[in-house]
């Protein structure tokens, strides 16, 4: 029953081990003549100005919040989508359809609200 997951785990382990081996091979085969300027980060060829770990535009956080909202709502639809045809078979198709319609309408209203609020403008 769960043997597919053994395959998944094996695949993951083999892929990661392979990636690691390639990097180790690179370490062995490549030259290692490190100098100060080689180990600097790249910034137009000048000395780097300060650190790159700064605060950054709020836009991207807004996208992240929208993503979480919509993705989680979408995930709720998956169980519905899987059993939908069974319910149609049992004669409850229209009921299930209306249930989903209510859900998707709310999602759509949410999108419209976000849109109206200007969260989707990128200036």
């Amino acid at each position: 029953m769960h043997e597919q997951y053994v395959t998944l785990a094996t695949l993951a382990v083999v892929a990661v081990v392979l990636g690691g081996l390639i990097l180790i091979l690179n370490r062995i085969l490549g030259p290692q003549k490190w100098t100060k300027s080689k180990l600097d980060t790249f910034e137009t060829g000048n000395e780097p100005e300060g650190d790159a770990r700064h605060r950054f535009s709020i836009r991207f956080y807004l996208v992240a919040i929208l993503f979480i909202l919509f993705d989680i709502e979408a995930v709720f639809l998956f169980p519905w989508a899987v059993v939908y045809r069974e319910y149609i078979g049992a004669g409850l198709g229209l009921f299930m359809f209306m249930e989903m319609l209510v859900f998707v309408t709310i999602l759509g209203l949410g999108l419209a609200y976000v849109w109206r609020k200007g969260a989707l403008e990128w200036d």
Binding site: I22, L23, L25, N26, R27, L29, G30, P31, Q32, K33, W34, K38, L39, D40, T41, P48, D51
Partner: peptide, 11 residues
């Protein structure tokens, strides 16, 4: 690519 120098920036 395997023969290229493997650099990790200091910072």
């Amino acid at each position: 690519l395997l023969q290229k120098e493997d650099l990790v920036p200091d910072s």
